[in-house]
């Protein structure tokens, strides 16, 4: 077993830390995982929940969830992808519970007309950071989360479908609509 003091120096991978934690139940391995990922998890929670206190509660509950489900992590995917899936799932559920009448995804209320032409990824990715920030705060929270999963965390359609508990074709449709909404809001805010 690796000496606990050398975790940082040895740059042990997340997956290896999970393995060591499962084997020894030594809390220091989990503590290291918390230190590595809590900032990003907090950032995602804050970005979706838009409330510092809620984001702090979310971090706590998400890591307890990770701890309880550690045995289910099969090491088939990256550990970071797995915990971000749990994070998005938790945040979307929280928003759904707190704001029951909020529109989560574009198209859920049939208000968005299905436009035939596909919005290219490059159109989204070429948006400047300042504009991106504005637009992401104006589109429905589910659309924001799905675009973050796709472009920020490079999650596969399969991973996103597991988070949202939807079929892969339903996820593709949601991504398409989120991109359309993004373009619509962009057009409304920036005329160039």
């Amino acid at each position: 077993m690796k000496a606990i003091s050398s975790i940082k120096e040895a740059k042990i991978s997340d997956e290896e830390l999970v393995h060591l934690y499962k084997e020894s139940q030594n809390t220091q391995y989990f503590e290291e995982l918390y230190k590595r990922h809590s900032n990003k998890v907090f950032g995602k929670c804050l970005s979706i929940l838009k409330d510092t206190e809620l984001a702090n509660d979310a971090v706590q509950e998400i890591f307890i969830k990770i701890l309880l489900n550690m045995s289910k992590f099969k090491e088939a995917s990256k550990f970071s992808t797995w915990i971000y899936s749990i994070t998005y799932n938790y945040c979307i559920d929280t928003v759904r519970r707190r704001k029951k009448n909020t529109l989560m995804f574009s198209g859920d209320d049939e208000s968005l007309e299905d436009v035939a032409d596909e919005v290219e990824d490059s159109q989204i990715l070429e948006t400047s950071i300042s504009r991106l920030k504005v637009i992401l705060n104006k589109i429905p929270v589910g659309d924001k989360a799905i675009l973050m999963m796709k472009y920020q965390d490079s999650m596969s359609i399969k991973d996103i479908s597991a988070v949202l508990d939807k079929s892969e074709s339903a996820v593709k449709m949601k991504i398409k609509r989120a991109k359309q909404k993004f373009r619509l809001v962009y057009g409304d805010n920036y005329s160039d």
Binding site: S38, N39, V41, N56, S128, I129, L132, L136, Q152
Partner: peptide
């Protein structure tokens, strides 16, 4: 740009509170 935005927000944020850390470790 999505990843850059995340980096920017992370730099500005103080991260989770010590309360969250203590809660997780206590749990």
């Amino acid at each position: 740009n999505f990843q850059e935005l995340e980096e920017q927000e992370l730099r500005q944020s103080r991260g989770p509170s010590t309360g969250a850390y203590k809660g997780v470790m206590g749990g």
